[in-house]
Design a protein around this nucleic acid. Structure first.
Lengths: 148, 148
DNA sequence: CTTGAACCTCTAGTGACTAGAGGCCCTAGG
DNA sequence: CCTAGGGCCTCTAGTCACTAGAGGTTCAAG
């Protein structure tokens, strides 16, 4: 099987400019070209991009995926390191869930303020402006390098 | 009370370059300057930045915050619109929680594969590469314009 | 008056793409 | 064999919400 970049895109669900971007940053090896300078991919290109797509869907950062792909290339495939990265990712996801759950309950509280609204001041706006009305702490979400 | 940009930063927990950035994009009005061209803020500056900080911590996008602040300035303060924005934010947060919970369970499954590892192929890497092994669907996280 | 911290503007970089301009190539139909 | 139109090419610039750094000015304490 030989794929054009568009065919590869359809097969994997990764958009064409994104595939070129992955090549540019070194996540995919430089594709071979046909006589007219267009990219041509084989089975291994399909598999590599499929791996990236799946790992991205699971929230891994491109840098992590780079590491994972390098591990996969090694003889014997370093399972311990792969496992470490996967567990780190899991921890991050769990932390973000916990954080978002706090946010959700705070937002619920604020949204309910409107149900019994008075005539004058908007309680929602007041609550948004005043942290001391909050029932729980809520620090900013840590900015992760993973896909948001 | 008169604040320098550094004092305002300490009082609100928003970093100095971020305050300048907010001014640049029109989220904060242009600050008054002293004789030496340095920004000086009063009570209303403190309150405006406090509002922004709190809303950001709750995950609102800067664009949403701009709308909310405009509402707050209006006579009568449009509570219905503020409520709509808050509820939309809540829906987004809930959707992200659901999505992340799927991810977490998938990652748990993958991480456990290593516990009974065989000698040859790393099962973690295999699982990452092969979506068909997954127990559930997992589409990519919708890229929101809110703080991640 | 001196020192050094805080302030100023401006540019460029982050992650992971996305959009658009301007042009070349490939393939199916006539 | 020719043409039309879709797909492909490179390059630049934009997204969001900042962050980092260079190079220079101002303020306040000692």
């Amino acid at each position: 099987m030989v794929f054009s970049i568009g065919a590869l895109s359809k097969a994997t669900g990764v958009k064409v400019p994104t595939i070129r971007y992955y090549e540019e940053i070194g996540l995919l090896p430089e594709a071979e070209r046909n006589a007219g300078n267009q990219r041509r991919y084989g089975q291994e290109g399909l598999e590599a991009l499929g791996f990236i797509k799946h790992a991205r869907d699971l929230g891994f950062a491109l840098e992590d995926i780079k590491v994972l792909m390098a591990l996969d290339g090694e003889l014997g495939t370093d399972c311990a390191e792969a496992n470490r990265i996967a567990r780190a990712q899991l921890d991050q996801v769990r932390a973000r869930i916990a954080r978002l759950q706090q946010l959700a309950s705070e937002l619920e509280r604020i949204a309910h303020l409107c149900d019994g609204g008075d005539g004058g001041q908007c309680k929602v706006l007041t609550a948004l402006g005043d942290h001391s009305q909050c029932t729980a702490e809520h620090a900013p979400l840590p900015v992760t390098k993973s896909g948001c």
